[in-house]
Amino acid sequence: MSGQSHISVKNLNIWYGKQHALQNINLDIPNKKLTAIIGPSGCGKTTLLKSFNRLLDLQDGFKISGKVLVDGEDIYDPKVEVTHLRKKMGLLSQRPCVLPMSIYENVAYGPRLHGIKDKRVLDEIVERYLQEASLWSEVKDRLHQPASRLSIGQQQRLCLARGLAVEPEVILGDEPTSALDPISAERIEQRFMELKGKYTMVIVTHLLRQAKRLADYIVFIYLGQVIEHGPARELFEKPKDSRTKAYVEGSFIEGYANQYVI
């Protein structure tokens, strides 16, 4: 880990076929802080996020140059075991996506993959992380029911518990509240506030107010480029770039509508 940064991005370029989705990204994600990636839709926020746990490898026509260092190790090095990397990076997706099994099995799935077989240990893990996602009291009497019967908000907290159960170092969130009702969204945000001292968190959001509420550090992406990044307060109060200023003030960024965006 190089000083304060947990993830370092160096000269990162990403293409989908002929589309140059991310251009010359250089970035340090601070350790054990919550970083929000903000910017208009289709500017490459999710692409940047998913480059951190190599989910982009599944995309058609995906090409990459440059480096992403996690704990000082280049994750695109062919020698890197991708399952180890992904275990380190928990992901919370836009729509909660529960596995087709019971609530208990959803949380136990990851630990089981990584070799935990003892029923008592699994029971403990399930309880601990369901509590950490503040879902335990709601589901403790129906742990063996299908997870798909939970409400969407509960499903998203289950996904959080499931992600935490493999003991990641980093939590990635891809607009994790955008499919939720306001109350469920608030509960997820509260969990994030409590988790951010323990984990390095990177959240993609298009909600400026959410970024202001949660983030310690902000990355502003616009049309595939990082325009500005810095501590949240600084970036919101004294943006250096005129485009950042326009975006955080909610006014029109010149030329946005004319661009072909990703």
Binding site: N53, L55, L58, T83, H84, R86, K87, M89, G90, L91, S93, R95, C97, V98, L99, P100, M101, Y109, G110, L113, H114, C159, R162, G163, V166
Partner: peptide
């Protein structure tokens, strides 16, 4: 949905584990 595959992979599952334990189910 593709996200189901991503959900399993991002927990550190291999593709085979994802195929047998999640997608097949």
């Amino acid at each position: 949905p593709h996200e189901l595959q991503e959900a399993s992979l991002s927990l550190g599952a291999t593709r085979l584990e994802t195929a047998c334990k999640v997608i097949f189910k």
